[in-house]
Simulated scan of single mutants.
Amino acid sequence: MEQGFVGRTGELDRLRARLEEARGGRGGLVLVVGEPGIGKTRLARELARRAGEAGVPVGWGRASDAEGSPPYWVFRQLARSLDRPFPTGDTGGSAEARFAAFEAFADSLREAAAPHGLLAVLDDVQWADAASLALLVHLARDLDRAPVLLVVTYRDTETTGREALTAALAALAREPVLTRIRLAGLSEAEVVEQLGRGGVSADLATLVSRRSGGNPFFVTELARLAGTAGDALPDGVVDTVRARLARLSEPCRALVATAAVLG
């Protein structure tokens, strides 16, 4: 059920303003943060759509949690989307060689940005490898002199135990080019608007809003129950909840199970 882009007006305005600054020569880094399903990727896609309409080149890379994914995977994808080479030859060598390779990639992004600026999106960076995170930090340190806007999305619920990620986030927090956007659930009015486009009544949309907390993924999945019998949750919601519970310790899962029984 796709009802189009709803809400996030303030967040989108901030992103568009940063993109205009980048096109003017002062690049930046925006971290878009939130729980799974909250709309981070959707917001980045909407920005990318509008950037493309304005003639701004757009590159996209997505980190992977799959075993065997190579180092720098998110940046390899970004380079491929921009039809640019990735300097694989020296990134695994000495510190000096790696620094030179990082600089070569930064130069390549600046070339891709001429003359209209560049929007580069790195999605799901909570899964990025340590090498990719090191390159991200390196790029951020020189963005203020590049016509490039880097938009990075990550799940702040999945940082525990990811030492390279937490170290990179700490390093990025010290950079003046950084803007952080934390997404919360859609408002009740926004959920009513979103589901109303799909023919869902305002009363049911209000109920979905309250049950979902405005999380767009849960909103869409729960709305699929409209017109069906029973209170069973959609498979997509069940699978997502199971995945989240699987990351908890055994005592935490036992506590959640007890609360569910009592609740």
Rank of each mutant, 00 (worst) to 15 (best):
D156C: 06
H116A: 15
L133Y: 02
P115C: 10
A113C: 14
A113N: 04
A164H: 09
W127M: 13
L149E: 05
L136C: 08
T157I: 08
L143H: 00
L139T: 03
Y154S: 09
D144Q: 13
A120M: 12
A120I: 07
P147Y: 03
L165Y: 02
R155P: 07
Q126I: 10
P115D: 04
A170M: 13
A167T: 10
A114V: 12
L118H: 01
D124R: 11
A131I: 09
P115A: 13
E163K: 12
D124C: 06
P115I: 11
R162L: 14
A134W: 01
T153S: 14
E163F: 12
L169I: 10
L139Q: 04
D144P: 06
G161T: 12
H138S: 13
D144Y: 10
Q126R: 02
W127L: 14
R174G: 15
Y154E: 03
D144V: 15
R145P: 07
T153H: 06
D123Y: 07
L136F: 10
D144T: 13
L118M: 05
V125P: 01
A120R: 01
L169Y: 03
A170E: 14
V125L: 15
L172I: 09
G161N: 12
P115Y: 08
R155Q: 15
A146N: 04
D142C: 12
P147L: 06
A120Y: 02
L149A: 03
T159P: 00
P147M: 04
T160I: 14
L149K: 02
D124E: 14
L135T: 07
V148W: 01
G161R: 02
A140W: 00
A114R: 12
R145A: 12
L172Y: 07
A120P: 04
L139D: 00
V151F: 11
L118E: 02
V125M: 15
H116S: 14
R145T: 11
L150A: 05
G117K: 05
A131K: 07
G117E: 01
H116W: 08
D124A: 15
S132Q: 02
P115R: 11
D142M: 15
A164V: 11
L135F: 04
H116P: 00
L118A: 07
